[in-house]
Amino acid sequence: MAPVSSRTLRLTSPATLLTYAAMLAAASIMLGPLVVMLVTSLKPDTLQIVQDLGGVAAFIPGPVSLENYKRVLADQQMPFLRFLVNTLVVVVSIVGLGIIVNSMAAYCLARRRFRGRDLLLAVIIALIIVPVESLAVPLLMMVNHLGWMDSYHVQIVPFIAHPFSIFLFYQYFAKLPKDLDEAAAMDGASVWRIYWSIIMPLSAPVIATVAILQGLEFWSAYLWPLMVTRGVEFRPLSVGVAQFFGQEPRQWGEVMAFANMASLPVIIAYLTFQRWFIQSVVGSAVKG
């Protein structure tokens, strides 16, 4: 019974209470806008919404209606489903190809010995802190020159190689025992085969981490898609939301419904993978 009583003790200690209070405050600040978004999207009456938005009423649900959602989905000028498909194509391609390319780069860095390896690794780590925004203009000139504007690949190709993903893979691979590679080499496996049949199957946690990080980053990417897409054909959700928001007169209920539907897939994905994600973040912290 000792562990139980010590647990109760800790739950009621002032320090614990304070911690919980702080976490509660932080959670409300983060969840507040989400609640407003959800509540507002379910209110059918635009006038009512505008009145409510100024105060506490924004948090209080009125009669529930899916009218806003129906209208968003029916809107031909701002095709939500088109935006969604575009985002999915771009994000899934970046994540899928990114896992392969970045893990291969990291595997070479972690296992092969070649001249300039340390320098290359240092450069890649340094690249982590370079924001995409600072590269946007030269990159734009490049893709324009290539005639890639207004397409899927202009949103995908520049972002497959991802320094932070390479770094995470590198760290993970460096900790996998080298004996495994050597045993497989003794078994006659090629470098490619070792990577594919031994290393990658053992890397599920880091693959999940990288997929979530890179996926989230490009789910919400805004500047670049705005620069390289013209019509709605290849435009992703993030740009779509802003465009939808910019319409006059502003239909708050529909804006919120749109935003809700745009966030939902991310929240679902995150909740599904969060256990892995936390595991691997904690794991790398403890081992590192």
Partner: peptide, 16 residues
């Protein structure tokens, strides 16, 4: 290693 026709048992076992 395969051409040499040698097989090795590692100290760490190195099982997959």
């Amino acid at each position: 290693p395969v051409e040499r026709g040698v097989a090795m048992v590692f100290q760490s076992y190195a099982l997959y």
